[in-house]
């Protein structure tokens, strides 16, 4: 029984002929913090826009909170429970912080005054300052406040920590961890900062050329993948590539580097039979997992 807050199947979208998404299957379970990774132009922002109804899919289905998003009414109902932080963190240029908060507050009957005050105090945002005069960090904090104080069950963010200094980044991550713990919110965000994703996410989805190439629990992925380094006397045998469980093979001189997945012990045995002079098995970092899956070969 899955309680996925976000569920897409076969989601496709093209812009004037060139495909941005080709059958994306994505599932974000309740209570998880899911990192959405991909190269620039792989389809991350398109996905977020589709989920929020700013774009309409060419094919495929979207379910939010278990409900099919097939009409404007269903989208509006979903948006009452979602908080969104856009990539450039743009808000209304003619308002100040206080007005922006009042404006947003008026639209959400479930607004949490206590959260609003908590984050106002935590972030120390100046109430009377005009929004365009805020630094990017403060705008991010304001958008986060607006997203969280509305009592959202699901938070969707496009590169929340881009352009922020390490101290502010840590503040934001801490706020997210807190939301997941106390508020039991589900968080789905796209990011280029692998280190942060490894720190805070328990799920990860990697998208490449419009499709999900990895989607699962991050710790499980780390358990299932291994890097195996084999050195040979001569050139590494070509039979290496056809061993079961080899996701990716790279050769440098007399060393072969395998990204292995699944029954790693069996694979190591089979690899040993090919007569390497040394065998080394190492854990795989998210960075390696990412790079090996998006190299676009």
């Amino acid at each position: 029984m899955s309680d996925n807050l976000i569920d897409t199947s076969g989601l496709s979208k093209s812009y004037s002929g060139s495909p941005a998404l080709r059958g994306l299957n994505l599932a974000v379970p309740r209570g998880s913090i899911c990192g959405f990774l991909g190269r620039n132009g792989a389809g991350k922002t398109t996905t977020l826009k589709l989920l929020l109804g700013m774009l309409r899919p060419d094919a495929g289905q979207i379910r939010l909170f278990g409900e099919a998003m097939d009409s404007e009414a269903s989208l509006i109902a979903a948006r009452r429970r979602i908080g969104f932080v856009s990539e450039d963190k743009e808000l209304y240029p003619f308002m100040n912080v206080g007005q922006t908060i009042r404006f947003t507050r008026a639209l959400f009957p479930g607004w949490r005054r206590d959260l609003e005050e908590k984050y106002m105090e935590l972030f120390r945002l100046p109430l009377m300052k005009a929004v365009p005069k805020l630094s990017k960090g403060m705008r991010t904090q304001l958008m986060l406040l607006l997203a969280m104080a509305r009592g959202a069950e699901l938070l969707m963010m496009d590169e929340p920590t881009s352009g922020l200094d390490p101290a502010m980044t840590e503040d934001i991550l801490r706020a997210l961890a807190d939301l997941a713990t106390v508020g039991q919110s589900t968080i789905f965000f796209s990011s280029h900062q692998l280190a942060e994703v490894e720190q805070i996410c328990d799920r990860v989805c990697i998208i490449d050329q419009g499709q999900a190439v990895i989607d699962g629990d991050l710790d499980d992925l780390k358990s299932q993948y291994r890097r195996i380094l084999l050195t040979f006397d001569g050139m590494p045998p070509s039979a290496l590539a056809s061993l079961t469980g080899v996701d990716h093979l790279r050769q440098r001189g007399r060393t072969a580097s395998l990204l292995a997945h699944g029954n790693v012990d069996l694979l190591v045995d089979q690899a040993r039979e090919l007569g390497p002079t040394s065998v080394e098995v190492r854990p795989v970092t998210l960075k390696e997992l990412f790079l090996d899956h998006v190299r676009g070969e």
């Binding site: 961890a177 713990t181 720190q199 805070i200 328990d202 710790d219």
Partner: peptide, 18 residues
């Protein structure tokens, strides 16, 4: 508590729970 560890290390509470 899970909350304490998640807060101190700034990490995911589900992972602590696991």
């Amino acid at each position: 508590t899970i909350r304490k560890i998640a807060e101190e290390l700034t990490m995911n509470p589900n992972t602590v729970a696991r």
